[in-house]
Amino acid sequence: MYVAVKGGERAIDNAHAWLAEERRGDTSIAELSIEQIREQLSLAVNRVMAEGSLYDPDLAALAIKQSRGDLIEAIFLIRAYRTTLPRFGSSEPVKTEEMACDRRISATFKDAPGGQVLGPTFDYTHRLLDFKLAAESDPQADAETAKPRREPTPHIMEFLNTEGLIQTEIACEDTPPDLTREPMELPSNRALRLQSLARGDEGFVLGMAYSTQRGYARNHAFVGELRIGAVPVEMEIAELGFAIEIGEMTLTECETVNQFQGSKTEPPQFTRGYGLVFGQSERKAISVALVDRALRWKELGESDSGAAAQDEEFVLSHCDNIQATGFLEHIKLPHYVDFQSELELVRKLRREAAETYPMQEAAE
């Protein structure tokens, strides 16, 4: 931050005080608690955690409260706080097949092995305002709350592999690079792309995914499986020589099935798009999976269609909402010197034009 005029610091302090007053709102109304935000605005909390790259519902709720509900500002706060935290190791890859699924659906298999679990979703609701929610206290639900599936649930996509119809994914033994600590390098590998998309702006990634469905990429996809639930997080302890469970987190995982006509090196088959994000973030996970598949055109030997969603540099350089916000909003800050130079340049050009074309100037 810089101050270009005398008295700017005092004005900024006053602006901060006014912001705090506006944040609190009418003091006759009870203040919103962190617990209320965490429990009742959980989808907003999930987005802040996902795009802030920090899994902590309480801190995400605090950031939402501090930012007055501006989720991008809340994400900025979480990322800034994250930079102060030490990194003391890497966890083992999570095993999503062991997920305790709150929700698990497939758009490609009606009788999916393990069954379809609809879970908590807006998909089957009428988009009508429920004025019961405006009451002082919410009525208790009549239906008994469903329990998540606790037994291991195999991935539906693996059943396609029994016929050899889907491309086999090759496991990477190396620890993937950490985008939050190392700058993005282009061209990037798939692990980096997925990191960037998972913490990218939901609206931007959604727009890119939508463009692929409208023909701006060779990407006709089906949702092979979408699952949401808690998974254990394990970390290997050097002193023990084996991994122990250090907690659990809720994740949304999406695998899409995409038709592939084949290339010189690959036979006709189905290929995958993949998305994995913190919390219940279905729209984001599906969007990531669609864009992930669109960006794989080169490794699959497909020709470049020129679509924006297939341009790795364009997508990865613009999906981050914190970078975008910073660059966009910095033009609100003082640019007096820059503008004065532009103003003098335009005046000079007008004088030169008047000297060169005096009759035209007179006519005007």
Results as ranks from 00 to 15, higher is better:
Y2N: 12
A4V: 06
A11Y: 05
E31H: 09
S33A: 06
I37G: 00
Q40W: 03
R47V: 04
R47P: 00
A61G: 08
A63M: 09
S67K: 06
D70E: 10
A74C: 07
L77V: 01
A80W: 04
Y81E: 12
S91H: 02
A100Q: 13
I105R: 04
D111H: 09
F122N: 12
D123P: 00
L133F: 03
P139C: 00
Q140G: 08
N161R: 14
I166Y: 07
I170A: 13
C172G: 09
E173S: 15
D174E: 15
P176D: 06
E182F: 04
L186N: 11
A191Q: 11
L194H: 04
L197A: 06
G203S: 12
L206G: 11
S211Q: 12
T212H: 03
N219M: 05
F222C: 04
R227I: 09
I228Q: 03
P232C: 01
M235Y: 04
E236D: 04
T252R: 01
C254D: 05
N258K: 01
F260G: 02
P268F: 06
Q269R: 14
G273D: 07
G273I: 04
G273P: 02
F278M: 11
I286L: 11
I286E: 01
V288L: 02
L295G: 01
W297S: 07
E302K: 08
D304I: 00
A309D: 06
E312V: 01
L316G: 04
H318E: 04
N321L: 08
I322F: 03
A324T: 05
T325Q: 11
H330V: 08
A353K: 14
M359K: 15
